[in-house]
Design a protein around this nucleic acid. Structure first.
Lengths: 153, 153
DNA sequence: GCCGGTATGTCAAACTCCTGACATGAAGAA
DNA sequence: TTCTTCATGTCAGGAGTTTGACATACCGGC
């Protein structure tokens, strides 16, 4: 399976723990866990933080749009959103003039909470990639997107 | 933030959707969803499949060891394991001569089910990395591990 | 032998996320 | 207009995951 001359690792690995899916899961789990611990101090969960981050970037998103942005279903994000709404971090109008989609916005408190945790989350990310040269990081980001694209066809 | 001359992307990105965490989540979600759909035809869930795969590679693992191998808690894997046990895909002795850890083994049926789905899951993985050169894939696997290591310190 | 630290298995509660299903609203075709 | 199609919001159920807590079992030094 493996060529001892070139050190080439073919796409068909012999051990599932060397598969890209396994590594992907490991890296994701490590980041998720670290974020969980960091956000707990601020009484936020990872999905809640994800919603705040996306809403700060794209205010007025609907429930369904937000769901697509963070790669979960409408139903899932709806539950998270209810929690954020109860906590006073986001607002949704009860009715809208046109259509069913109700635009979601951060409250001042929501933006404050987001700003408060961003430094910690970003520091986590910086630590994660601290030993990866910029060129390789660029390739990494590109390849991650390429992998996602290949599966979404 | 970005140098237009060299095209260098610094570690501090201006947009969270360009962060490595976001890409990681996207790629992971894409694979997870594709695996979900593929495994559904065989009446298996992703965590169940993960357990079978690891147990085939390392028979006799305990509950806690299996949990570490698939990056979840003992409690989580315990629930999954109960389902697999009820389905007759794995066995655990009711008592053991020494210690509390009970070694888990695949049944013949468990191994058969695993073999039946492996081709589909591996095909998924192959599709995911089909546009990534072998050298870059090697670098990708290395960097994913490096990221996980950096967070587990 | 005894005891403290470590590892394991398990229970309970809460949260996230999914699939399936249904109702509502908008847009376009017949 | 009417009907079909699509997107959205929502409810219900089930599976996975986590934290917190507790009891059990080994293993080290005392």
């Amino acid at each position: 399976m493996k060529n001892p001359e070139t050190g080439e690792t073919p796409h068909t690995a012999s051990d599932v723990t060397s598969h890209v899916g396994y590594r992907l899961k490991r890296a994701h789990a490590a980041l998720r866990g670290a974020m969980d611990r960091a956000l707990r101090d601020h009484d936020l969960t990872v999905p809640q933080y994800a919603c705040l981050e996306v809403l700060a970037l794209r205010p007025g998103l609907s429930n369904a749009e937000l769901a697509r942005a963070i790669f979960v279903t409408r139903q899932s994000v709806n539950v998270v959103l209810r929690g954020l709404q109860d906590a006073g971090l986001v607002t949704r109008p009860d009715a809208v003039e046109h259509g069913r989609a109700r635009p979601i916005h951060l409250t001042d408190e929501g933006l404050r909470r987001l700003r408060a945790v961003q430094s910690r989350v970003y520091a986590l990310e910086a630590r994660m990639i601290r030993d990866i040269p910029a060129r390789r990081l660029r390739a990494l980001l590109e390849d991650l997107d390429r992998m996602a694209d290949a599966l979404e066809e």
